[in-house]
Structure formats: structure tokens, C-alpha cells
Design a protein around this nucleic acid. Sequence first.
RNA 1: GCGGGCAUGGUGUAAUGGCAGCCACGGUGGUCUUAGGAGCCACUGGAGAGAUCCGUGCAGGUUCGAAUCCUGUUGCCCGCACCA
Length: 830
Amino acid sequence: MNYEFEAIEAKWQKIWEEKKLYACQNGGDKEKFYALVEFPYPSGEGLHVGHPRPYTAMDIIARKKRMEGKNVLFPMGYDAFGLPTENYAIKHHIHPRAVTEKNIANFRRQLKSLGYSFDWDREINTTDPKYFKWTQWIFLQMFKNGLAYKTKMPVNWCTSCKCVLANEEVTEGVCERCGSPVIRKEKSQWMLRITKYADRLVDDLENLDYIERVKLQQTNWIGRSHGAEVTFRSTLGDEILVYTTRPDTLFGATYMVLSPEHELIGKWMEKLENPEEVRAYQAAAAAKSDLERTELNKEKTGVKLGGVMGINPVNGKEIPIFISDYVLSTYGTGAIMAVPAHDDRDWAFAKAFGLPIIEVVAGGNVEEAAFTLKDDTGIMVNSGFLNGMTVRQAIPAITKWLEEQGIGRAKTNYKLRDWVFARQRYWGEPIPIVHCPVCGQVALPEEQLPLLLPDVESYEPTDDGESPLSAITDWVNTTCPKCGGPAKRETDTMPQWAGSSWYYLRYMDPHNDEALASKEALEYWSPVDWYNGGMEHTTLHLLYSRFWHKFLYDIGVVPTPEPYAKRTSHGMILGANPHYVGNFDTQEQKDEMLRKYGSDALRPAVKMSKSLGNVVNPDDVIREYGADTMRLYVMFIGDFEKAATWSPNAVKGCKRFLDRVWAMAESVTGDAAEYSAENMSRMHKTVKKVTEDIDALKPNTAIAALMTLLNEIGDHCNRAELKTFLQLLSPFAPHICDELWERKGFEGICSVSQWPAYSEDKCRDQTVTMAVQVNGKLRGTIQAEADCADSDAVAAALADEKVARFLAKQGGSLRKSIVVKNKLVNLIVK
RNA sequence: GCGGGCAUGGUGUAAUGGCAGCCACGGUGGUCUUAGGAGCCACUGGAGAGAUCCGUGCAGGUUCGAAUCCUGUUGCCCGCACCA
């Protein structure tokens, strides 16, 4: 009989579901293991081939841990609030809830068709009121603890989504989601005080088992820098506070720069000699989108404030004050002292405006370029009492002096901004706050949670930037929970990242009505042992959820200071680029592609997209080759951490492998309960290799080892060897293994059988092939007894025919020999 | 500009100081066949008839020995980007 994957996969998926084979318990004698993958956003397009890569990898880990006797929590759910669903609902006049339900049903079907060992009893959905009740509850705790606040501030505004965006959602000045330009807009916004946790979010990374690039990216994003705040005075008498990481260069400050939005400018405006010019510059800066600011950042612009000067506190020198948009109002104090000799941007500005450049750290040529090294390379000059010190010595010395003079202090700054936590859209969690004209912002009493979304006629965002909820007057108008007077509900909703910031906790106890999860469940399962997800979430979801978790830890809700013990990340799956020049034979065609698509035509692989027509639908692959082949291929495609290109041909190779596994199983006869002597070390080696490679997240080489084993023993495999082979393959291709296990009459179900053991001892061969080098170059190989004495190996090497011939030809005598046990002999001859 | 990563056959890749190219795709030849876009077998880094020689982006270095470590350099990818 042939390998009929369609019937087999349907059969086993049904059995697993009916037996609840992969359900786990909260508690028990077994050691717990919590494996987590990022839950998907259930889009209308369905599962992308990118999804099965991380999901299959963690499924393999979960399945192996289960076979190793652990109590494994491996859950799945849906992060279902969000704009695409809402936009689809608007376009097709359907309620977003209906769209969400339809999409989830499709995702669930697709996930089940891949045979993942999720505990389906724990499925969650962030748009379920029973779920978002607790999202709202956490928000209220933050509000009560002063971490959620509303403030008027310039925000990122997407001109197409008509919605504010978090800093993390803006890339190169455009909306990360839709690619439209983002502009700055003054708006009153709910914010979360993530900056309060900045230090802990950086420092606690140290003890986490995260891959290095995730730690680095989070550290860079938080962007902690140490420096000093220094108070300058103006000739009009005001104090101007600046932030600098280089207080050592204070004597070299030859001018100052304020951001165009700085408050002192308004105060001075009356007294300025050039108010028109200043106002014009401010207006121009305000009108620029982030994109324009980014594009124009090479050329420095600015306006000198006429009629006011700054006074350098270290030497009393009067220096000019400029406004320029290279100084950001949102970082530091929005004002800087400019030291052109030792800062690249200040240098460029000084050159453009003909300002003096005073060297205060010797070691470079400040007329040619700024000298910016912050180590012991340079010596302080032109700097009064700092002269002769290195930069490293000067920084604490000047900081101490500033503190003594009462005009400055050490200061730490962060690039991290507070999190803009509101969206002017319908399909999100309502913010459970009431605005009372008497009492102000009032938290909704917890017993009134969840605060449900009202049904509305239209989900269209309004042009004035208000949420569609603002038009639902019977929902908006309410009474104040505090004073009972008339009040209005908050009409903004939470951003998409809200629900996903704590979802891993809900899986621990998903049906709890009393708490987000029981104390016992949280104690038992925390922390997540292994979390795999995309690099694109490093500074968004991953950072946000660490922040929420730390807050929940501080108020005693969760038992651990960090949510995830280990974090790994997968590479993207790319599609073939139809415009790639390598696809074309004639020079004319190549030129045509280059002309049309530019450097894009030089990439063989690109992100899959509908417009390129290179999208692969998992349903099609499963229909043609089966889920086991699909799983195997996405794991075999290449290094898990790197981007990989989908190859329709390579999929066939995985199908062929499974066909051969089927044929091998059918051919096995007899009742051997032990490996044959001939295959002994081979079996043990493969068990070791597969065991270690799964733990090291190298599924590609584990599969290669299984393919090698099949090639080696396929035609003389005994029953014991087949049993182990099926168990090793089972996490990768569970359906075919369970089927063959049953057909061959093994006991129980392969998927939950005990993971095979190996012994180091039996991994060793009796005789080994050793390479023989002469002066480091390979000249032959010898067969030697394993672990033989070095002298025996050398003797055997010298006796080898090829080696002897070479030595005779070359002449000279043996000076030295290096033996690497069981591997190599290197003869040094001169 | 800053931070990180990568570079190996026709292709995806493997080897992380010890026989470069495991495994797979593709290719060539054979076999079976009414047929082969199925299966099976053999070969498949380059040059050479061969013994051999050459070969991991490029140039150096360390080492008995380097794809692997170090220095420099070129190209590509990712993240951040006027963060003082």
C-alpha cells in the first residue's frame, strides 16, 4: 500500500483531538515546560507560509519535550483586534466581529490541518469580552498606579489610517502598516509610562536567555546614555537647561541651539530683532512631515536669534543662540550646547554658518572633521582646570565641579519615549475611563468590566481625528461612577499591542472569571520557558509585554520579574523574485528589468506579495504533498534564524523522503528488540544528533541526519531500528509516524511514546578512519582502532602506502607529529 | 552616520580550529517502460588522460593545521537614525 497522506493525516488529527492527546494539566508530578509561539493576527488572507516556520519549530520542541516526559503547555490563540479587519468591515459593510469570527475559523482550520500539538482547550481570542475584560483590568491598575495618563502632546499621525501611531510603529517617517506619510499633530493622548521601567528593561536583559541580537536591539531602542544637565544663562536673564553626554567639552561650546518648539522662543519673541524670520522657521519645521525631516537631514538649517546671547558658565563667554530642527524637542531638554570641534552635527552646522571651532581635546584635526572619540585617545586643552586630563578623567571632574557650583548635575537620558496608548478607531478594547466635568478622569469600577463596544452603524474614522465611538451618543453619555453626575466615556480604544501584552498569562488559566489567571496557575507555569517569534516584534510586542509583566510583578499579580526565560527568532520565508535579472537570458530582457525595477531586479528573492504573484498558500502545499511534507520542508529549508527562499522543487525532496520512509517501514520484518550490531553506533549517533539539534533549534541538520540514516539502513532495517527511527521523525512528521507505528503493531501512540535514549559509549565505532597530513596537507587516510595510542597512529600513518610514497619523494626527516584522537595525524617533516 | 549580521559548487546549505561541500534541489547517464514530468542505480566544485594541482568575496596575519580566530578591505542584508 502507498503512503496516502490525505486519509492518514485526517485520521490522526481526529484521533488526537478526540483523545485530547496534547492537553496539559495545571500541576502534577511531571516537570512543566511552557513553549510559546506568537499568536497570529487572523487576517482575511489566511495563514501565510511564514507562519508554519516558527509554529512547526516550536511544535517539534513541544512534541519532543512531551516524549521526554514533561507536562507541556503549547497553546494557540488569536490577536484579533486591529485595523485590517476594521477596514475590511467598512468596505464590505459587515460587523468587524463577524469578519473576525470568519477569519478565526479559517485560521483554526489551517492550523489544525498542519497537525500542531496545541492544547485546543486553551484557545484564546483577544476580542472576546471575557478576555479583554482583563486587558481593561490591567489598564485600570496602571491608571491607579499613575502609569496611564492623558496628556496633550505632538503625536505621530498617519494620514491614511487617520489614527495616531506609537513611535515604534513609524519607520522612516511612514506608517509601518500602510506606508502612508506620518505627520506630527498636537493631540490629547493616553500614554503609558514605559520610561519608568527603562532601566529595568535594559538591566534585566543580562540574565535572560535571549538571542544576542534581540538584547542588542532592545538596548539600542531604549538608548540609555549618561551625561550631564548644565544650566546656561541668556543675556536676557533666563536659564537655558541643556543636556550633553560630553560635559568635558564645555569649554569648546561656541554656540547654542534650541529646538524650534522650545518654550523660551515664545517668551523672547517680543524682544528679538528678527521675529519674522524666527516665526517662519518655526512654521516651516512644524509643517515638515517626519519623512521630509529625515530626507533633509543632511543639510543643516537654522536661524540665529537676534538680540539674545547665551553665556557659557565655565568661562562667561557670550555665544550666539540658534534654532534648528536638528535639535529635537522630544529628547533631553530640547536645547543643546554646541561643540563643533567634537560633535559631527555641530561641526556641520558650524561650517554651514561660519561659526568658530575651538579644539578642547587634542588628538584630531578639528578643521577637517570633528574629533569625537570618548576614550583616552585625546588630552584636554583650552579647558582651564581640565587641561592635561584624558576625556575619561575630565568627565567626572567637570561633573563634580558643576554640581559644586550648583549649575549642573549628572543625568541619564533615554531614547525610549512613553507609549502612545490610544487609537481613534472602533475595533479595539474601549478604554475604561469616564470623563466627569466635576471629578475629572474616573476609572470605571472593576465590577463594570468588561466595558463592551457598542454596536454602531458606521466604523468610519472621522476626519477630525475622533474615534467612531464619539458619534454614539447613548454610549458616550453616561454617569460619573464617583459623583453620579452626567459624564462622558473615553472614546479612544487601545492599540493592537494591548491584548498581546499579557496573553501568555491567560493561556495558563484561560477560563478563569475571577482573575486574569489563578495564583496557582501563574505559580506553576511562569515563566514561559521558550518563546519564539519574529524580529519585527523586538521593540514592539516583546518590549511592551516585558513592561506590562514587570508592572504586574510590582503589584503582586505575577510571581516572576520577567515573562519569558528564553527568546529565539526565525528568519522570514521569501518568494522568488519574478523580476530577478538572473531569470532572463537575453541582455535586452535584463536591461529592461533593471530599467523598470532598478536594484530590486538584482535580488533573487523578495518578500512574498500579491502584486508580485509569488505568494505560496499553505493550503495548496498541504493538498498536494500533505502536512508532514510541508512541516518537514519548512524545517529543512535552511538555517532557522536566517531568511530562506521558498523552492517548489525542494518540497518534492521532502515528499520523496517520506515515501521512502513508508517503503522502508513496509519492508521491515522480524521481531528484533535490539539494534543490529552493524547499525548500533549509527543508531546511537543519530539519536544523539537529532536530540541535540532539536534543543539547539537546528531542525535542518536533524532532518539531514534522519535522511542520512535512511540512506544507510533503509534496505536492512530491523524492527528495533524502525521503532527508533519513527520516534525521531515523529516531532517533524507526526501523522505518518503514528500511522506506521500502528501498522507495525507498536504499543500505544508514537507521538506520546518515550523519546529514545542513546549512550555516548555506543556512539563510538570500533575502527575509525583518520586523516593523515604531511606538513598540514592531506596526503592519505588510515584505518585505526578507536582510541589507539598516538604512537600506533603515527606508525600506521608512516606505513600507509600513499604517505610513504609522498615522504620518499619529498625527502627530509620526521621532526614532530601531532595526533588528534580518532581524527587525524599530522606529520611535520623537514 | 551608529549598531548588528552575512559572504562556501549551477541552487538551498553542512562543517565554528582537524579529511571543505553532509543532506537536499537541479543536472548528466543508465535501468524499468507503450510512455516517463513516477521509481530505482551511478556520476555530479574546477582544471587535467592521469599522478596530481587548484578551490570557502579580496589582501595580510596567528597556528603543526584556518571556511572557522585576528587585522584590513569590498559587497550585500537587517535594525535605528540629527537621540546632543
